[in-house]
């Protein structure tokens, strides 16, 4: 997990792919909003580390797609849904 510093809005984790345009946009949005979050590029993980990450994503988002944003281990936002992300993490 890579960490990005910012405003503390709880445990914010972004599961992304290094090659995916919408993942990049989601990450840029979180940075622009100044939110503290962790992210991981699942395609760059190896072996069991990758398997674990996929299982976690599937737990929150059964289709196993990216980007998957998990907020405080409860709320999940799948895809670059700007408005939803702003509402969930806004000021």
């Amino acid at each position: 997990m890579e960490h990005v510093d910012g405003k503390d809005k709880g445990n914010i984790v972004l599961y992304a792919l290094s090659t995916c345009g919408w993942c990049a946009k989601t990450k840029d949005l979180l940075r622009e909003m100044g939110i503290a979050f962790d992210y991981t590029f699942v395609d760059l993980l190896d072996g069991s580390e990758q398997d674990d990450a996929i299982s976690t994503v599937e737990k929150f988002n059964p289709s196993g797609s990216f980007p998957t944003l998990v907020i405080n281990n409860k709320k999940t936002i799948v895809g670059f849904r700007e408005q939803e992300i702003r509402e969930a993490l806004g000021p």
Partner: peptide, 20 residues
């Protein structure tokens, strides 16, 4: 860039927005 990267690492142009 994602497609070319996937071609490099997998040998085929897998969708850059899905985990191959």
């Amino acid at each position: 860039r994602g497609l070319l990267k996937n071609e490099q690492r997998y040998g085929y142009r897998a969708c850059p927005c899905r985990l191959a």
